[in-house]
Amino acid sequence: MRGILFAFLGGAFITLQGVANARISQGIGTWQAAALTQFTGFVAALIVMLILRDFKRQGFKKVKPLYLSAGAYAAVIIFSNVTAIQHIGVTLTVALVIIAQLALTFLMDHYGWFGLQKKRMGLPQFFGIAMMIAGVVILKF
């Protein structure tokens, strides 16, 4: 039960984050908003990390640089997300972000890219993506 509450709140925070970023962008600009909010998050996460002593330096050597660099994508993610919210609204943006996310994860799983364990595509997944796209079409037209 608490798991459901956490996951639900997590989703609420993700949407709130997008909307707050869009509002901050109106005030100070999109790149500024992305830099400012991530700086605050970085400082907070750093403090939590130091308090919990959750730091394993040796682990870094075992991870490929490509994987370590993923954080940098957030600049483009926030810029795109904010611009999309301003152009097409929150609901449509969130729906499309989710569809792209699931579809690409699905492809990566299917082909076993980036060393992922291969999982064959199933009919329910095709059907699920088709339904999501149908939902977006209903939302928009």
Binding site: L66, Y67, L68, S69, A70, G71, Y73, A74, V76, I77, S80, N81, T83, A84, Q86, H87, I88, L92, T93, L96, V97, I98, I99, A100, Q101, L102, L104, T105, M108, F114, L116
Partner: peptide, 20 residues
């Protein structure tokens, strides 16, 4: 452009999730 940017954001999110 709004639609394409949202799809771009979602694609990058899925890559980021896997790499992170």
């Amino acid at each position: 452009s709004g639609l394409l940017l949202a799809l771009l954001a979602g694609s990058l999110v899925s890559l980021q999730n896997i790499f992170n």
